[in-house]
Design a protein around this nucleic acid. Structure first.
Lengths: 230, 230
DNA sequence: CCCGGCTGTTACACTTCTGTCGCATAGACT
DNA sequence: AGTCTATGCGACAGAAGTGTAACAGCCGGG
């Protein structure tokens, strides 16, 4: 079943405002969105729509997110679908339980929509290497998220963890300008406080790493705005 | 009423520091910001400014945010304007009441400014689907807000930050004449004081940048009134 | 334990941009 | 033509944004 069109996402969230916001963002990002506001519908829709990824609210009336997750991960034909859990901060203690239940990722409310998008794409890439490319490519740079390897002109580059995440983020939308704040959100995570200037330093390090065997600087600085690839 | 210029946001927050920070960020994101520090002014400004979206603090002296929201959602002519509510974490219990009152989304303090931006944009896209990440075009000039790039006759132009924002503003409504004061508002921001003659200088710089590879002057000077594109 | 690699911060040099001024020029009006 | 105002433009000092080296702290592996 090698689908190649828009990736389908099943969005399960009982709170209308949140769901609406997410749905519009997902659609703007190119996802085909199916919505459900409770666990029961969700379980039915999984079979009907066969989504590529599920975004699942933790707390819901009737059948909770965790229960939906558990059931889906038990059935062989649905086990492969990545599930991203949403949860309020207060429930963070349950994090381990969430992942034990089989959720593939976990985002704490209030979350950055951008971050959630990035994670959804990441999960998608993980399970669907065929289409969206197991490998991100931009000019002569190739990045394989699975093996955590980066090539430039067929040479293997050595990057630090932060440089890697930074490059992944930039390569997911080549050309798009990311502000320092956005990059902090996407690469470092929203809870951490680090100075925005730190982004500059890591961009500098990434540049050096990308050019360790020569080649031009692929990272564009947009003064007053941020950084972009190409 | 299909406006296409900068999206206007009415920001209602009684706490000056918070309001300033938000206003700054919103302006940096390309919103035209109108501020109010109480509910009464807010209700007046809604009629005067006809904003595309309202960001509304929950707790305010005199007329509370929830009251403003309720009144606006009662009037047919303002019902369509999306409202995002801000609320301190302790008040989270009132969440349901907030949405019942008709708010379209809800952000808990302390919030991520980026997240709030994303939600504001999301709401805006919902109501005004047109302006999501489009490429602006006018004659042989193309401007891509996402990548922050400007082309003329397929050549990449180099603009400074202010020139860029100025051009974005002009291109969002080609042909419309903007007064110097309007441009100061839209490009520099409402609170900044700079001489109106500064606009002239930047228009001059923008002209030079737009013609750096030749071509005619696309900016029209309307004596006694301001500037326009085309 | 020490060591090497990575991280976040800071300081400083450097570049680019900004706002204002002064004067030249263009347009409008008498 | 003469006058008056508005606009264009070069120059410049100061501000702001950015690149980078250096440094101290942290952590995991020998």
């Amino acid at each position: 079943m090698a689908r190649s069109g828009q990736p389908r996402v099943l969005l399960v969230e009982d709170e209308p405002a949140q769901r609406t916001v997410l749905a519009y963002n997902l659609e703007a990002e190119g996802f085909a969105v199916t919505q459900a506001d409770n666990g029961e519908d969700a379980l039915v829709l999984v079979d009907e729509e066969d989504p590529d990824i599920i975004i699942l609210d933790w707390m819901m009336p009737r059948v909770s997110g965790i229960e939906v997750c558990r059931r889906l991960k038990m059935r062989p034909e649905t086990r492969g679908i990545p599930i991203i859990m949403l949860s309020a901060r207060a429930e963070e203690v349950d994090r381990i339980r969430g992942l034990e239940t089989g959720a593939d990722d976990y985002v704490v409310k209030p979350y950055s929509v951008l971050e959630l998008m990035a994670r959804a794409r990441a999960q998608l890439r993980r399970v669907r290497p065929s289409t969206a490319g197991v490998v991100l490519e931009h000019e002569d740079i190739r990045l394989d998220p699975e093996s955590h390897r980066v090539y430039r002109a067929d040479k293997v580059l050595k990057l630090g963890p932060t440089e890697f995440k930074l490059l992944v983020t930039l390569m997911e939308r080549p050309g798009r300008v990311f502000s320092r704040e956005q990059l902090l959100d996407l690469v470092w995570g929203r809870d951490i406080y680090v100075d925005t200037r730190t982004v500059d330093v890591h961009v500098g390090r990434l540049r050096k790493s990308l050019m360790q065997f020569g080649g031009s600087d692929p990272v564009r600085t947009v003064r007053g705005a941020g950084y972009a690839l190409g």
